[in-house]
Design a binder for these strands. Structure first.
Length: 258
DNA sequence: ATGGTAGGAAGCCTA
């Protein structure tokens, strides 16, 4: 069972890239971020034609997340618990087969310090609370998405230049580490511990050509999910295509449940 | 070198 995450930076602008990637990679489950459209403007038909069920939590202009799955999507929950006043569409969770899958678009948080950074840290605290609940419920789960956190300096092409950025600040890294310390496994890191294994390259300055990247898209696995982890990877092909997203798909492969 | 590029919305904001 292959579970992937892909920040598309507008699903409608990216539809050709997404269709091409789904057709070749054939992931079982996909978490999409930055749809930048409301539910009714999500291009469902061409994706359904490839055999996917779809659950969308959209928003006009900004944010927006979705789950795609070749298997049934059950018990969908949208919105991260813990703040009823949070209007931003950044979280969707559902059960697929035996796995609870959370698709997330963690706030960028720049500039730091400031209100946007405070929102990011509060959101991360709520994600930690949600993780605690999933563990208490005994769920086998994967939390996948654009975390907007570079866990270590090895995940940044130029750590000195990025040390004050919200993606690299100690407050952000500390909260990411809290998730790991709850027993979660970084799916990419488990198979690819080397530095400079990136998932995102800025549009500006020839970042892609120079491999000036960041590792900010992650799949975190519960202990029971990690016991089934057999492979992981980064698909760089979509980033090299025409009109690409600035992110590229990242995936884990889980052994089928018995 | 306080830029650069991309997307959506509306004549800027977010990333």
């Amino acid at each position: 069972m292959r579970i992937a995450t892909f920040n598309v930076n507008s699903i409608n602008a990216r539809l050709p890239r997404v269709i091409e990637w789904l057709s070749t990679a054939q992931p079982d489950v996909v978490c999409l971020q930055e749809l930048k459209c409301e539910d009714h403007k999500f291009p469902a038909e061409p994706i359904e034609d490839l055999g996917y069920n779809i659950s969308v939590h959209g928003q006009k202009t900004y944010n927006g997340v979705a789950l795609l799955s070749k298997r049934p999507i059950e018990d969908v929950m949208v919105g991260l618990p813990g703040d009823d006043g949070d209007e931003q569409a950044r979280y969707i969770e559902a059960t697929i087969d035996t796995v609870r899958v959370g698709g997330l678009y963690l706030p960028n948080g720049n500039p730091a310090p400031g209100p946007k950074f405070d929102y990011k840290l509060g959101w991360m605290d709520r994600l930690i609370d949600r993780t605690r609940q999933l563990l208490a419920d005994g769920e086998t789960f994967v939390l996948a998405g654009d975390y907007n956190v570079c866990p270590t300096d090895g995940d940044v092409y130029n750590p000195e230049g990025w040390q004050d950025d919200a993606l690299c600040r100690p407050e952000s890294r500390n909260r990411f580490r809290q998730l790991i310390n709850m027993g979660l496994t970084d799916g990419i890191r488990a198979f690819h511990p080397q530095p400079h294994f990136y998932t995102y390259w800025d549009y500006t300055g020839g970042a892609w050509q120079k491999d000036n990247g960041l590792r900010i898209d992650h799949l975190l696995l519960s202990p029971a999910a990690a016991d089934r982890l057999i492979a992981s990877g980064v698909d760089k092909d979509p980033r090299a295509g025409e009109r690409p997203s600035d992110h590229t798909p990242v995936w884990v492969e889980l052994q089928e449940s018995p």
